[in-house]
Each structure stands twice: as C-alpha cells, then as structure tokens.
Design a protein around this nucleic acid. Structure first.
Lengths: 233, 233
DNA sequence: CAGTGGTCTAGACCACAAG
DNA sequence: TTGTGGTCTAGACCACTGG
C-alpha cells in the first residue's frame, strides 16, 4: 500500500525528508526526477519543485540541471539568524530598554576600519560609542563609525535619545552588509563600560552595511558576559 | 513611460526592492496587492507572489492575508549561516586538517548537560574531547556528550581516526537541532589545549541535535583566538 | 463575510550542463 | 545533443483574518 494523500508541497517535503532519514534514499544517491515524483505523488510537478527547492535551500539536497537531484553527501546545515534592532531584541525578552550615548566626535579611523568603510585615507568619519541597557544593566557596548559621504543627513541627527542603530535603520535605506561573529577579551575600557572584569571573554558582532555601492557604517557590538545568540535548524 | 521589461520573478523582486529603498513605498505602508502588481508588471500573479514571498522571508515585507503586504517597519534582517563539518570548513580554507582524540569515557554529565540531553538523572553518557587542527595549529576544542540510548551504534565506533563530528553526520540521521553562539574566557584547560593564554576570549558554539524525539548529542566547540564566523545579508 | 495572500494545476518554454 | 531542473502562465480554489 502507498502513503495516504500527498497533495501539498509541505507534505511532499515531509515525505522526501522521511525517505532521506530512513536511508531509503542514501547520501550521494540520485533521487527520481520531478516528473516521476509528481506522477508517484499524484500532484503537479510545480508542487514537487517547490518542495525539493525548499530542501535544497536547507542543504539536504543538491540539485543541478541535467544531473538531477541528489541527497547531499555532507549536509551543510543552514541556520538563519534574526538580526533585529537592539532595542527590539531587548524588549522582545521582556526587559526594559535603556540607552546611553557615551561619545560623539569626528576622527580618522584606524587602518582596518578605513579598509572596511572603503574611504579615502585621512578622511574623518563620525565616531560614536554607546551603551545599551537591559533592565538597567549593561547589555552591549556599541562602537560605530559612520561614513558622512554616504549619509550626510547623519550630521543633524541627535543620538542622545535615539540610538544610531535605530536612527540609521529608519532613515538610511541600505541594501546589504557583512556580519562576522567572534570573541574578544575585555580590556579596561570594556570592563568599565560593561561592568565586568578585564579578561572576561565577550561575544562580538562586527557588522558593515552598504547601499548603492557606498559603505554606510561599520559597527562593533561587544556583548556583556553571558550573552547568547540562539537559533535552530 | 514605464520601466523596461519585468518578466522574471527576480526582476519583480529587484523592482520592489528599488521602490522600498527609494522610499516610493515607505516603511509601514501597504503596497498594492499581488493582482494589481501583476497587471502593472504584465506578468502572472504567481510570479509576483514568488518575488514578494522571497522579500518577506528576507524580512523586508510583512504579509498577511486580508491585511495585505506592508513594508516592514523594523527590517529584521535574516542572515543564513552555513554549518559545515569542521574538516570541510578547514579544508575549504585551503588548510591541512588534523584531528586528535583527547579523551573518551563514560560519565554522568553535569546537570546543565543532562537537561540539554533530556536524559534520566544519573544515566551515564559517552563523553569525548578532541582537538581539530588547521595546518597543525589548534583550531577548535570539541567537548561532546553522546546519548547512547539514541545512538547505540556509537559504542563500536573508533573515534581515534574519524572525528565524532563526522562519524555522527554520516551514520546517524538527525532531524534538527539548536545552536547557540557565545563567548567564554579560556581557563587553564582551554589555554593548554588551544595553545593560548588563560583569560583569552574564545568564540563558542553550543549545538544540540535530535531525531525522532530523542536528543542525540550535545557539543561545545571552543575556537582558538582569532576565529571569525562570517556571513552577509 | 469578503478580500488578500497561499497554493495547486496542466501545460509550455527556457537554460544549463552532462555525456 | 538532450535530459533535467527553473520558470512562467492563466485560471482556480482555499484559508486565514480584518472589518
């Protein structure tokens, strides 16, 4: 006897997943073509396509024209991370959000920052440091450089009340960016600001965003000890 | 005059993105319905649907039946991370992979580990520690617990040559898992194994995988200083 | 209850790459 | 060259949810 009714693309997806897990279709093996599966499941090829495309995006299948669809040999799992505005991340946890602007000045950034911002050597940029608080306790230390050439309106923004994070998101449209996750050792500065001890390991996010070919801002977020970024696959 | 030719779902996606970026459609605003856009672009509604669905997944749009499609107020950017097998990650960087099994024993895990593995109190689990090397230098320290109830075959596996990471991926089908990223401060043990100094900040990945309702394994990966996990959006 | 997105279909053509 | 996935269409019905 055959399986019950497989009509929706989600049920096709589940059935295919089941066959992969049960090793009915083994890693590296080519599975039947879309048309054949459509016939077997009694649905349209587009439905099968939608399901298989989904599994390919998840890393479970490798698909190539003419070559067909294979079960991934090394299932490179894809995990999607949500990168919300910090205020919303904190409020989403049910905590009270707080924000303090620590410094604001124009300065010529260090070489590595200049490289990330792709600016001319010696060009001064807007430099901000700030602290985000959750229930009054230090949550993350923000160290940001903003390219005024790409976002001139920033000069008139008042970052005392609204964080640059939020101001930029709502005022400067951006296309894309890079993110890197790493760790650093807290120095005196971070220890002081984040109310931890020098030498503590801190979780760090470096993010650079751009639009229309211009780099807008680059920021380093150093989180207080205990911070965890969580997701699943 | 109107835009050139918009036929593919990708060009629809680009055009919609353009209108969002140019603030022609502002954050929070409801954009025209699928049918109307299909008419405007001269394509089928399914094509528009594919484009808008893609943008909604990326976090740029909020879509709800009956309510319509709105430009996201707070664009929660989604970044997808690739989680490859460590050997492949290292080899992918063009470095020589090395692996050393440091310890293997049966033990009763600490309370937090037991909670993650969802096992009975006092039940012994397989405990492994290992070091992965890149070009002969310490790359990541692996501290793993395996639930023998969920994967009895593990007992006969020889982890001296093949890492548990790889053995499990190829031998135990798993459905999903949780991942958490954080930082820790290197203690004497980590400093010794990773050839760094105690007090160094280390990037940490905690991962727990399960299948068929059973938790299979939980692992903590502590990376040597300097490690960065990179992605983009 | 009515409008919008979500999905499915049957068929067609296209684009890429393996043999 | 030719088979396989990638995409588009026109139309239909469904499902959720706002008013």
């Amino acid at each position: 006897m055959t399986v019950a009714e497989i009509r929706s693309w989600q049920s096709v997806k589940e059935e295919v997943q089941r066959r992969i897990q049960s090793r009915q279709w083994k890693p590296g093996e080519t599975i039947p073509g879309e048309s054949e599966l459509a016939r077997e499941f009694g649905c349209a090829r587009a439905t099968v396509n939608r399901a298989l495309r989904d599994l390919a995006e998840a890393g479970l299948l490798d698909r190539r024209r003419k070559a067909g669809t294979r079960v991934a040999l090394h299932p490179v799992r894809k995990a999607t991370l949500d990168i919300p505005v910090i205020r919303r991340e904190i409020e989403g946890k049910g905590l009270a959000y707080g924000y303090v602007l620590l410094s604001r000045d124009m300065a010529v950034p260090a070489a590595d920052i200049m490289a990330r911002l792709q600016t001319r050597p010696g060009e001064a940029m807007l430099h901000l440091t700030a602290l985000h608080l959750a229930d009054g306790r230090p949550y993350v230390f923000e160290n940001r450089w903003i390219n005024l050439t790409a976002a001139p309106a920033v000069e008139n923004a008042d970052f005392a009340a609204l964080s640059a994070n939020e101001w930029l998101v709502t005022n400067i449209p951006f296309e894309g960016g890079d993110i890197a996750f790493s760790a650093m050792t807290a120095g005196p500065r971070e220890a002081d600001v984040l109310d931890c001890r020098p030498g503590d390991g801190l979780f760090v996010i470096d993010r650079t965003t751009w639009s229309a070919g211009k780099t807008i801002t680059t920021v380093r977020l150093a989180f207080a000890p205990g911070y965890r970024m969580h997701t699943h696959f």
